[in-house]
Amino acid sequence: MSLSTTRTYSTPRSLIRNFTEITKMRLSVSVVFSSIAGYLLAVETVDFYTLFLLCVGGYCMVGASNVYNQIIERDLDALMDRTKDRPIPGGRMGVTSAFVLASILTLAGIALLYIINPKTALFGAISIFMYVSLYTPLKTKTPLAVFVGAFPGAIPFMLGWVAATNDFGIEPGTLFMIQFFWQFPHFWAIGWFLFEDYKKGGFFMLPNGKRDNGTAIQIILYCIWTVLASLVPAVGVTGSLYLSPFAAVLIAGIGVWLIYYAARLYKLKTDKAARQLMLVSVSYITLLQLIYVLDKFLR
């Protein structure tokens, strides 16, 4: 009786755990947060129905990409300490079940985003295609995979704007540019402190394949470009996307913080410094989006 009761209650928990892990819930939620920020930057009055569709549809699209990715990389995931206990290599989910889940998420995501408008659905579909069909297979072939992966990775911020306006112009293009440049120092920092683990799976994540001065210098350069791109709206050349002088000072401040930790990685070249840069990069993009949104609604 006791064993039966335990099984009854453990099954739903196992399903929830498998779902959150295979869709990478924390990552997916952070991506949805970017889309929400882009949406809020574009609207004067929030349509909560559209926002709901964007959140659920966006999660489905990102989740589907992550599931497809783990299906493709299941044998390589089993080789790495960081990923060997994921649902598929860990034996908690079969490939067929994962593929069915990914298919359902894809169809649901595209349908929900299409209800918002066709352009939003199109960009969502492009994001899945590039992540699964281009970025994922290139990770074991060339460091250029990070460049390719930066395209789908930069779509969510601008996707919110497109969802709000049904238009792609200078404003969502600027949001795309900011998150595009940001991808490089973020993922290269991860590639640095997970270098040995990635090597077990045969992944090429660093620009020259080494944890050396060349990689560290490129990280600094892309941090600088990220900060410069983030300040472009303050100049008044990005249409209705505008940043006040006070907000620009705040962005510059967190930009200096980001560049400092990139320079620190160049100086120390340690896994700890790379991990700290990764955490700072996540904080940077989150704070940037909050500053952009608050600046719009408070000025």
Rank of each mutant, 00 (worst) to 15 (best):
G63P: 11
S65P: 01
V67C: 02
V67Y: 01
Y68S: 02
Y68V: 04
Y68K: 06
Y68N: 04
Q70N: 11
I71H: 00
I71C: 07
I72C: 02
E73C: 03
E73S: 08
R74D: 11
R74W: 11
R74G: 05
D75A: 12
L76F: 05
D77W: 00
D77K: 01
A78Q: 14
A78H: 04
L79Y: 02
L79F: 01
M80E: 01
M80N: 02
M80A: 03
M80F: 02
M80C: 04
D81N: 08
D81C: 01
T83V: 10
T83K: 04
T83G: 05
T83Q: 00
K84W: 02
K84R: 15
D85V: 06
D85F: 07
R86L: 15
R86G: 14
P87V: 03
I88R: 07
I88T: 13
I88D: 10
P89T: 06
G91I: 03
R92K: 15
R92V: 00
M93P: 06
G94K: 14
V95N: 05
V95P: 03
T96M: 11
S97A: 12
S97N: 02
S97D: 00
A98C: 14
A98D: 14
F99P: 02
F99S: 11
L101C: 12
L101Q: 06
L101K: 09
A102E: 00
A102Q: 13
S103R: 00
S103G: 10
I104K: 05
I104S: 08
L105W: 08
L105S: 01
L105R: 00
T106P: 11
T106R: 13
L107M: 12
A108T: 14
G109T: 09
G109A: 13
I110D: 12
A111N: 09
L112F: 15
L113M: 08
Y114K: 06
Y114I: 06
Y114G: 07
Y114N: 14
Y114T: 14
I115R: 10
I115D: 09
I115W: 09
I116N: 06
I116D: 13
N117A: 14
N117W: 06
N117G: 08
P118L: 10
P118K: 08
T120N: 04
A121G: 13
A121R: 03
A121L: 07
